[in-house]
């Protein structure tokens, strides 16, 4: 399945001191931005409204041209290739989806393949494959976009962006217009999908929680398009570079960090199994530390039994309250203790 869906895994994207100033403006929208997205990673761009997230993303497929610096995709500069060829080889997904209303779903998916001169048979086969990949029923192929729900439309948007199996994808708040339940579903599915296809993705969002969930790495921009911090979610939450980032990731960053790890991992790390009282609460190994903490607090106990995912009778180990606290604290020795987060006395 994996092989059929993607023969072209992601390639590295590198921003080298890129600056963009819009005509007639005094200050740049993107200011001396340097960052590298490793091949196959999702890089989330977060920041305030007007912080330059969309601008930074559009510089990659040259919907906007930068003034200084260089952007490399797989080692070659985006200015060294023909602009239409560049864009056709980069998946592009936007919040408003922008499907072609006059084309069937199948035809929408086939737009870029047709421009590239694929045969009708090949396009049809690819559409079938992609509908499968984004979990839409095959009978959607002959429908028009207006006959689909918002979530279904964005699945088609994803399929369309993946049509020619591009190594790189640009996504501008792709799930921002969906209701929370649909958004959560499609996020999970996209992550699963990404496990198979391993594209290099630049994913713009203003939602730090979405960035923590989706991003292998997160770039936090501040007003004026300056990079405030670039790192994994764990790095950002554990050791925010400054007050701005700390504020941005939220005063509850300790709890958020707990969401990044699973109970199962803590059991392994802790090694020894503390003997637990028979009435200690249980939690599945696949639960996050955050869920574990919640169960612990609700029960009044100081120790949790962690069970097998499929068999809640099999205890694989225990985790104590102290261990949970250490999990947030210990992996962040550089955490600035003097940071005063707004709103916290």
């Amino acid at each position: 399945m994996t092989e059929a869906h993607s023969q072209r895994p992601g390639v590295e994207i590198e921003f080298r001191s890129v600056t963009k100033t819009y005509p007639g403006q005094d200050t740049p929208a993107i200011d001396n931005l340097s960052l590298t997205v490793p091949a196959g990673d999702i890089c989330c761009l977060v920041g305030p409204s007007g912080g330059g997230k969309t601008t930074a993303m559009k510089l990659v497929n040259r919907l906007i041209d930068f003034n200084e610096g260089e952007i490399l995709i797989g080692g070659s500069g985006v200015r060294d290739v023909d602009i239409t060829a560049l864009r056709r080889d980069i998946g592009y997904v936007i919040q408003q989806v922008g499907l072609f209303p006059h084309m069937t779903i199948e035809a929408n998916i086939g737009v870029v393949p047709r421009l590239l001169g694929w045969s009708a048979d090949r396009i049809k086969a690819r559409a079938v494959e992609l509908l499968d990949l984004v979990r839409l029923d095959q009978n959607f192929a002959k429908r028009y976009p207006s006959q689909l729900s918002g979530g279904q439309q964005q699945r088609v948007g994803l399929a369309r962006a993946l049509a020619v199996d591009p190594p790189v994808m640009l996504m501008d708040e792709p799930f921002g217009a969906l209701d929370p339940i649909t958004r959560n579903e499609i996020q999970d599915e996209f992550l699963k999908l990404q496990n198979e296809i391993a594209k290099t993705v630049i994913f713009v969002t203003h939602d730090i929680d979405e960035a923590i969930k989706m991003g292998d790495r997160i770039a936090v921009l501040r007003q004026g398009g300056v990079l405030a911090q670039y790192g994994t979610a764990d790095e950002l939450l554990g050791s925010p570079a400054d007050e701005y980032v700390a504020d941005f990731v939220g005063a509850d960053r300790g709890l958020k960090r707990l969401s990044l790890r699973l109970m199962r991992d803590l059991v392994k790390v802790s090694g020894e199994n503390h003997a637990a009282p028979a009435d200690a609460p249980t939690v599945k190994g696949s639960a996050t530390l955050r869920t574990g903490l919640s169960v612990l607090f609700a029960s009044g106990s100081r120790v949790l039994k962690v069970t097998h995912d499929d068999d809640s009778a099999t205890v694989i180990g225990t985790v104590t309250l102290d261990q949970l606290q250490d999990a947030v604290y210990e992996t962040a020795p550089k955490a600035p203790t003097d940071v005063v987060v707004a709103g916290e006395a």
Partner: peptide, 15 residues
């Protein structure tokens, strides 16, 4: 034509 449709078309590499 919806602006988002045109924006998507531009981004996908239609001339």
């Amino acid at each position: 034509a919806p602006p988002e449709t045109i924006a998507a078309a531009d981004g996908m590499g239609l001339t």
